[in-house]
Amino acid sequence: MEPCIGKVYEAMDRTIEALKSLVKHDDKYEEISTMCVIKLDAHYSPLDAATYMLDLEFKDKKQCVDLEVANGWRIILERFDPDSAARGLIRDQLSKYRT
């Protein structure tokens, strides 16, 4: 079984974007999209963010600029290795992996 939380995040992003064309009233769109985000946030953990960051399928999606994902990744790195030099090496390796 492979990690799939990245696929859930991506599907939710696509769903929220699709709502823009389906819901004609801005206030209704905001209400529905907020409910979607609240549901997704209820199941969020830093480990989920790290798996999304490392998912090869989404390596071009710029997860690193998403503050929530980047923060989750940072938390996992700090738990994994308290040495800041080692974390810097891991970040460099992730950059190479993504390109």
Rank of each mutant, 00 (worst) to 15 (best):
L47M: 12
I38H: 10
D60R: 08
D48V: 13
Y29V: 04
C4L: 07
L94C: 02
W73E: 06
Y52F: 08
Y97N: 03
I32G: 01
K62N: 14
A11N: 04
I38W: 07
S84R: 13
D48P: 06
D66C: 04
G6D: 00
Y97V: 03
M12R: 06
P3N: 13
T34F: 04
R74V: 06
D26V: 14
P46A: 00
R91T: 06
E30V: 12
L19F: 03
E31F: 11
L22I: 04
D41A: 14
D60W: 08
D27M: 08
R87P: 01
L54N: 12
T15E: 10
L67Y: 13
D60M: 11
R14A: 14
I32W: 00
G88T: 14
K59W: 00
A70F: 06
Y52N: 02
M53G: 08
A11I: 01
V69C: 05
F80T: 03
M1Q: 13
D81A: 07
L19N: 00
P46I: 02
I38C: 08
K59L: 04
W73Q: 05
S45K: 05
E78I: 08
F80E: 01
K59V: 03
Q93M: 14
S84T: 13
Y9I: 12
P3F: 06
I76C: 13
A18H: 05
I32V: 00
D81W: 05
D92S: 07
F58I: 05
R79Q: 11
D48H: 10
D60F: 11
C64F: 15
Y44P: 07
K20S: 15
N71L: 12
D55G: 07
L94E: 02
S84F: 13
S95D: 01
Y97P: 00
R74G: 07
L22T: 05
A50V: 11
A18Y: 06
G72W: 03
I16W: 03
C36T: 00
D81S: 11
L22V: 04
A49M: 03
D48W: 07
R74E: 09
